[in-house]
Structure formats: C-alpha cells, structure tokens
Design a protein around this nucleic acid. Sequence first.
DNA 1: GCCGTTTTCGGCCCGACTGTTTTCAGTCG
Length: 575
Amino acid sequence: MQNAIVAAQLTEYADLLEIQGANSFRVRAYRNAARTVENLSSGLETLIAEGADLTELEGIGKDLAEKIVTLVTIGELPALTELREQVPTGVHEMLRVPGLGPKKVATLFHDLNVRTLDDLRVAAESGKVAELKGFGKKTAQSILEGLALLDQQGKRYFISAARDVAEALEHDLSQVPGTHQVAVAGSCRRRRETCGDLDLLAVADDETALMDRLAAHPLTEKVLARGETKQRVRLRNGMELDLRVVPSGSFGAAMQYFTGSKEHNIVVRRMAQQRDLKINEYGVFRDDVQIAGATEEDVYAAIGLPWIPPELRENRGEFALAESGRLPRLIERADLQGDLHMHTTATDGTASIAEMANAAKERGLKYIAITDHSKRVTMANGLDADRLLAHWQEIERISRGLTGIHVLRGIECDILEDGSLDLEDHVLAEADWVIAVLHYGLKQPRDQIMKRLLNAIRNPHVDAIGHPTGRMINHRAGADIDFDTFLKAAADHGTWLEINANPARLDLDDVHAAAARDLEIPIVIDSDAHSVNGFDVLEYGVDQARRAGLRSEDVVNTLPWPDFWERLQRRQPTG
DNA sequence: GCCGTTTTCGGCCCGACTGTTTTCAGTCG
C-alpha cells in the first residue's frame, strides 16, 4: 500500500472522529501522523519489512504505529471500517462544502438525518436547515451556494496559473495611491505544486481604497467577506484570494505568518513560547511589548534562527538545518545552463530545430538536447530508427551553423509495456543523450512497472529517466513505483533522474528529488518544451528543486558547457 | 493520541470574520 493511501485513510479517520465530536487533540494526532507518512521518502511497506520502529517517526506513538502496520499489512483498518459504519460517506463529503465544519455537519446529521449532499440540498431549500439552532437563513443560503460551487472549490490550481494571477494582482494593487508594499504569501510563495487559494499582503495608508480596487478588479468576480484588515474575494478563474492590510511594523511578521506552512508556523510559535515570546501576524512580543516584526529576518532572529527560504517551510527538517547553520543555498533559475528535453516539428513540437536552438540561446541557455519521441508514440508521429538517424544528421548540420549554443542529438525513448526499449541498442549507442520514459501502461502492477524501469536504468545507453512516475497533476496518478528500489538502482548504475518542469508534471516531486539527492544521484531539470515559449516553464522545475532543498551543485545541467559534456562522457560507457 | 534536561499528567499555536447571538461558537487560514 502506497504511503499516500495510508495518509488518506488516516486523514479520513481524523475527519470522522471530528464529526463524532472527539477530542480535538486526538484528531490532530491523526492529522499529524498522516502528514508524517505523506512526507516519508521511503515506502512504508519497505520500512515495515525491514523491521523499522515506526514510533521513532514524528508524531507517531504506539497506537498509531500499530494502526499503520495493520493498514499496510492487512490493507484495511478495522477501527476505520467501524467509524465509516457510524458516519455515512455522504456525511463525510459534507465537510467539503465551504462553511461547513465538523460541528455543523454533525448537527445536520443528528438533528435532520442529512446523509448525502442531495439530502443537504433538499433540507436547505425546504427551510429546515435555517430552523436549526446555530444556523439561520444566511447559513442555509451559503450551503446552497457552496453545493453549487463544490466542484470548483475542491480544485487546486497549477502553480503556473496561481503565480500568473497572483503576480498580476500584486502589480496592479501596488499602483493604488498610498500603497507602500504588496506581496504574495501563502502556498504560492512557497511554490507548492498546486495552490488552493491565494494570499496577498499589503501595507497601505488607505486600506479602503486598496480593497475597493481589488473588489473592482477585472480578475475579481465576487467579494466573499470584508472586514477592516481583511478581504476575501473569488476570482473569475474560480480561485479565492485573501488580501490583508497590515501595519508596516508588522509586515515581516505577517509575511512569515501568512506564508506558512501551518506546520512550519506551529513550530515557530512553539519555539517562541520556549523563549517566553509570543509570535503572531503582528509581530514578536515579550510581555505584550513588540520586539520585532518589520522584517521576516527579525522574526526568525527572535527565535535564534537565520531566515528560512519559503520553499523549505514545511516542517520537514528545515529547523534542524537552520539551527546548525546548514541551510542550503538553493538553486536559482539563472544557474541553469542547459535543457535536455524538448521536441521539434519532427514529432509533436511546433518549432524547428533552429528555432528551438535560437529560442534557448535567447533565454540564456548554452546547450540543449533535442529529444523527439520514439516510434511507440504514434499519436505524436514518433521516430523510428531511420527517421531518427536522418533527424540527427539534420541536428548536426544545423548545429554547425550556430554559435553560442551546443545542440545534442537526443531521443526521448519509450520504455515499452514489456520492459524493452522502443529503439535498439545499436541505435541508442549513436545518441549524444538518451532520456527514457514511461508513457503507456502506467496502470500496470508495481512488479511490472519496476521491471520496466530497472531494465531502462541498467541499459548503459540510457542517460536519464524522464518524468519518472508519469503523473499528471489533477488528472492522473503516476505509476506505482517502489522508490527505494528505483533510486538505489539509479544510484548504482549512474543513471540520472529528471525533474520535468512542466507545471502539470513536476515529476520527480520534491520528496523524491530530495531522496535522490541524498543518494547523490545527479538531477536534471528539463522543460519538455514543445514550442519556443516552452522554455519558460523551467522556473517551475527550479521551484520544485528548491522545495527539495537542491543546490546548484546537485543539478547537473547547471554545469557550464565543456564541463557538462565531460561529465556526460564520464557517465557513459566507453567505446 | 502524542510527548517529556522541570513533566508519565496535563498540556497541545493564534487571530479575523460571519452569523446568530446579545457574549459567542464555528469556520477558516
């Protein structure tokens, strides 16, 4: 059973306990455990098989360790099954309705016997909901609106879409007279793969003017809530955005607070407590006297820490690194010297070899690999051996006419369902660069997926595995990979691994990229560009690498040209 | 349910906004 599934079941357990009115700290314990499991770099199956003591994991004690072992070995948790019998699925689903939390859901279930979302709609329309104690007409109305929006509300948006909107609003709001600062906070600033909503912070003399401007902004659809310091709106793309106006002396504290993550901030505030300090969004306080808060650096300094990059603020080890002065200097977009995964009109790209090379050069890249599809990808007009050899000749010809950029003859070679590669070894041997990928049969059982990946890793002509899981964010799960085995094999055979920068992929993810780095596996960050503008996604790949804590030296395509080429030759078999 | 260089019991992060109240509970981030 995959860690993500175990985590989901623990979260469900917490939800159901909460609806039943269980002790909130007990509920939190299940949520914390779910989080710990989700962030493990090793598979629970492997850990348990090796006899690891799960109680050594953060937030997991004797009881939860037993429950997790039961889940992984038997495949289900009797205690969860029992809870599910007491709380119908539809009641659990009601938690997704905006404005409904565990208390109101429990009241609806117990007092009105509402068991499904349909029941809920009927009850709200009939006026029964409005009659409940603690409810009212507005609550009933907001439930109906929430039901109508459920599909969109649950949606999370690609980091690319979130950044576009957030940065546009950041710019436009900063133009409002009397506005001194506007900045993006929240998960968008932490560069999560997806964002559920957006957070903007501002320092302004006239918060009314600022909120009015946001309310009237073309990107805004509706004002959902408005107070003296905070306004929440729904944007036309369906995202919700919070704008908070804070005093300038609190700006750093507010940035720290609203950047999160929640888990990171819980630790920050606990550390503050231990120093008899209190930290909230207004500042750092000792005996109700503010001692810091204008900048984030001051806030961290108050608890004895250096400033921590937002991408690392997930309570996944950043505090230990900060305390010991070992925070990494994270990779930046400008560090990338090359891009090793892209397509041309030879298959499903929209630009020629020369156009891609020139576009890459304009974006500051010094070398690229043209990696069109292999023949299995018929939909994209994939290349067979003959067409590929001709394509490589063309690449060589064009490359000779270019200055300032080196163009490698590459191929994105499919790893077929039976585990073989889509091109023969003697063809691959002629390539400068081979990136092997799974495109088809992603739903095969783990054993077969692993057989395919290990075959590719062991092939001496395969330089890297591209978008290893094949997942598409918000669309499909990736292949079922035993990452412990996969990463060890890559390390043993000197095979590199890709972080595919396409915002729908971002594959490897941050947890696995960090695990790969720990094994000293070289990482490549690639655009997978299909057009001249396709290079622009590289920044999202860099974001993902930063969340993994990667430094420039962990990413092999940060090497300048001759060094990269030499490094690649050392990787490849001689002869 | 977890956790412990003061603890095996008694804590567990903090504040804004809304709706339904008339001092506060619930939800959200």
